[in-house]
């Protein structure tokens, strides 16, 4: 579409329409297009103003309305790969800005995405393509700040893709995926607790694989997050369930002897919950009793160079004492 006037004289609706056409064109030719980048830049200008010029409320409202009417956000994300580097950044900017938009208590873009949840899953699948993974990650996290959108992702089957994404071989993509994963599991506390409780078996079966990962970063990050999840009071019942199972204790005891000191340290913070539990289940108690002397010996030599970390030392001594005082209940089982 030719521009007889300077770009500033085009209305938001015109730019949106032009962009929509140009994006559609991208799809056909499968190559970058200058017009798309130009349109994106103009939209960005309307949204955030330029230099000292404040954005015009009227124009922003018109732009938003036009975005919803044309489903432009969907085509932009679908064709993100074909848009050039700066253009991709502008899409992220446009998207984030419009998601944050508020009218009184309403967030119209959140309502729009709620009605078009495919947007969320397109963003999520974006992690599979290296050229747009980070852009999609940023847009996805912007969505996850809003509980209804986070709920849609968390309670979907696609959520389990994250267990694959966080292990991707490209470090920055895996890290970004982990950040989204963590946001999903921690940001909206009540919802997260509800999710973990109701999907305990499925989630923790998958989660355990992360703890066994050959990828050091995955292993360490997921172990750390596990500790945070279990020690958050909102997840009290999940924690109780987790520390009632002997196989989890075994896993942590093995990780206490991991080659990496950092893994050992993170494992300690999960291990301590098993020991401190005043209502240990029989299988857990059995394991602790069976290894009573070995554990006391091990803990008294565990990371002794952290002596300046008072809290760690206190906790270690507390655990040693707890383990020393462990007694077999009245009805003893195997020796």
């Amino acid at each position: 579409m030719p521009f007889p006037f300077g770009k500033s004289q085009k209305s938001p609706a015109e730019i949106v329409r032009s962009l929509k056409e140009n994006v559609a064109y991208l799809e056909k030719v499968d190559a970058g297009d200058k017009e798309v980048s130009k349109n994106l830049a103009s939209l960005k200008e309307i949204l955030s103003g330029t230099g000292d010029k404040e954005p015009h409320t009227e124009a922003v409202a018109q732009l938003a309305q036009e975005l919803y009417n044309t489903d432009l956000l969907i085509s932009l994300i679908a064709n993100l790969q074909r848009i050039d580097f700066e253009g991709k950044k502008d899409v992220v900017h446009l998207f984030s800005n419009i998601v944050r938009r508020q009218i009184g208590t309403r967030t119209p873009t959140v309502e729009y995405i709620c009605a078009h949840t495919q947007i969320l899953f397109m963003l999520l699948k974006g992690y599979e393509s290296a050229e747009m993974a980070l852009n999609c990650g940023m847009m996805l996290r912007e969505c996850l700040r809003h509980e209804p959108l986070a709920r849609t992702v968390l309670f979907s089957e696609d959520f389990y893709c994250f267990f694959r994404f966080v292990e991707l071989s490209t470090f920055d993509i895996a890290s970004d995926a982990f950040a989204s994963f963590k946001d999903l599991l921690t940001r909206h506390k009540i919802m997260c607790a509800d999710f973990l409780e109701n999907n305990y078996d499925k989630v923790f079966t998958e989660y355990e694989k992360l703890l066994h990962s050959d990828n050091y970063v995955t292993k360490r990050q997921s172990l750390k997050l596990l500790g945070e999840l279990l020690l958050d009071r909102h997840n009290f019942s999940v924690m109780t369930k987790y520390i009632s199972r002997a196989e989890n204790l075994k896993l942590m005891m093995n990780m206490l002897r991991d080659n990496s000191r950092n893994i050992q340290f993170e494992a300690f913070h999960v291990f301590k919950v098993f020991v401190a539990n005043p209502n240990k289940t029989q299988p857990v108690l059995d394991i602790l009793l069976k290894n009573q002397t070995k554990l006391m010996e091990f803990l008294s030599h565990f990371q002794t160079d952290r002596s300046e970390d008072e809290q760690f030392c206190d906790e270690k001594n507390y655990l040693i004492k707890q383990i020393r005082d462990l007694k077999r209940p009245v009805a003893p089982e195997e020796a």
Binding site: Q102, I103, G104, T105, K189, I190
Partner: peptide, 12 residues
């Protein structure tokens, strides 16, 4: 949780 969902808090 109730406070977060309250319209005065959600409002811009």
């Amino acid at each position: 949780q109730n406070i977060r969902q309250h319209n005065w808090v959600r409002k811009k």
